[in-house]
């Protein structure tokens, strides 16, 4: 666990030695193999989640990262009570998720794609009305929350259209609205912006930030869009092949994997030489546009040097793209294993 959790705090999600295995049927190519497999099926046991330890505090936003098949969705399903672990323990808000206690279900929401909560054949407003009763909301609570969510998500114009006829973006926003109507204490988000255009992704991210600021639910988020993670989560848990490979601040992950920053500079004219012994190396040059990798502790020095030339049209200093970092992490884990 990262340092941030060493201080006493109330954990809303706790897992210990969590495992989930799946039996997967195997078959080699060909008719003979099919016949053999018919009489004697061959199964392989896949360890989708392996000895996972997870502690998430109240109101935390945690990015849950990993390549396809790493076990992220399986973990979310176990935490929300959809799947039973093969072994290990889970405690979410003091409940064992798989017992599906109604008090537990009233305290969580899982958003997994755009077809999770909305009634496909009815307009979203009908789903909201059903949820209102199922979750036992008073008229006042319902009216206030609907007003807030409709306003924050800008969905007033699609409330009365049949859900199946809504665009992906509209559906996703309505999906979020219905998932949040009962103000869950924990929100599991599995790829909430998948398939959406950049503008819509940003809208959803801003909404989630705004919502979190106001209501402080714990959020566990998986996303392949690193912009989502960078914008929403300070802390990330990275898993690969079901095993946790990193748990900590996003900035720590960046420092650990990439002790350098990217300095991009556009010169008005002339050249700029960068020496490896100064902790700087050129990675790209296109005319007057240079990109250097600079050791983090040498960045101020190099930047000062650049400014001193009095020849700078533009200068940016940034961390390497999160995608690259995560990719690098998975590669190193694969090599180690």
């Amino acid at each position: 666990m990262p340092d941030m959790n060493e201080q006493p705090q109330k954990y809303v999600i706790l897992t210990h030695a969590l495992n989930r295995e799946f039996k997967v049927r195997q078959k080699t190519e060909g008719l003979a193999a099919s016949i053999r497999n018919f009489f004697a099926p061959d199964y392989k046991t896949v360890n989708a989640v392996n000895q996972l330890e997870m502690q998430i505090g109240q109101g935390e936003i945690v990015g849950f990262l990993g390549p396809n098949g790493a076990g992220k969705t399986t973990t979310l399903k176990m935490l929300s009570g959809l799947l039973v672990p093969t072994s290990g323990t889970i405690e979410v808000l003091g409940h064992t998720p798989f017992s599906r206690n109604h008090n537990f279900l009233r305290s969580i929401s899982l958003v997994m794609g755009q077809k999770q909560n909305l009634w496909w054949d009815l307009p979203p407003i009908e789903t909201f009305a059903i949820h209102r009763r199922i979750y036992g909301l008073s008229d006042q609570e319902y009216n206030e929350r609907i007003r807030e969510l409709v306003e924050m998500l800008e969905i007033a114009d699609c409330l009365e259209t049949q859900t199946r006829k809504l665009s992906l973006g509209q559906r996703m926003r309505c999906e979020l609205a219905v998932s949040l109507l009962h103000q869950p204490k924990i929100l599991f988000l599995d790829e909430p912006t998948i398939g959406l255009d950049i503008l819509m992704q940003k809208k959803i991210r801003n909404f989630l930030l705004d919502y979190h600021r106001r209501f402080k639910p714990a959020i566990l988020l998986t996303s392949h869009y690193m912009d989502d993670v960078a914008a929403l989560a300070q802390r990330v848990i990275v898993i690969d092949h079901g095993t946790k490979v990193f748990d900590g601040y996003l900035s720590d992950l960046t420092h650990k994997l990439h002790p350098e920053k990217i300095v991009s500079v556009v010169l008005n004219n002339g050249e700029f030489a960068c020496k490896p012994e100064e902790g700087c190396r050129l990675i790209h040059q296109d005319g007057q546009h240079y990109r250097f990798l600079v050791e983090r502790n040498r960045v101020p020095e190099i930047a000062a040097k650049l400014y001193a030339t009095g020849n700078i049209a533009d200068l940016t200093i940034e961390d390497p793209p999160l995608e690259d970092l995560i990719g690098q992490l998975f590669k190193s884990e694969t090599r180690n294993s």
Binding site: S80, G81, L105, I108, M112, K115, Q116, N117
Partner: peptide, 11 residues
């Protein structure tokens, strides 16, 4: 997978 929706509701 729409069974998921039903399993996650207090209903």
């Amino acid at each position: 997978g729409s069974l998921n929706r039903d399993l996650l509701k207090p209903f």
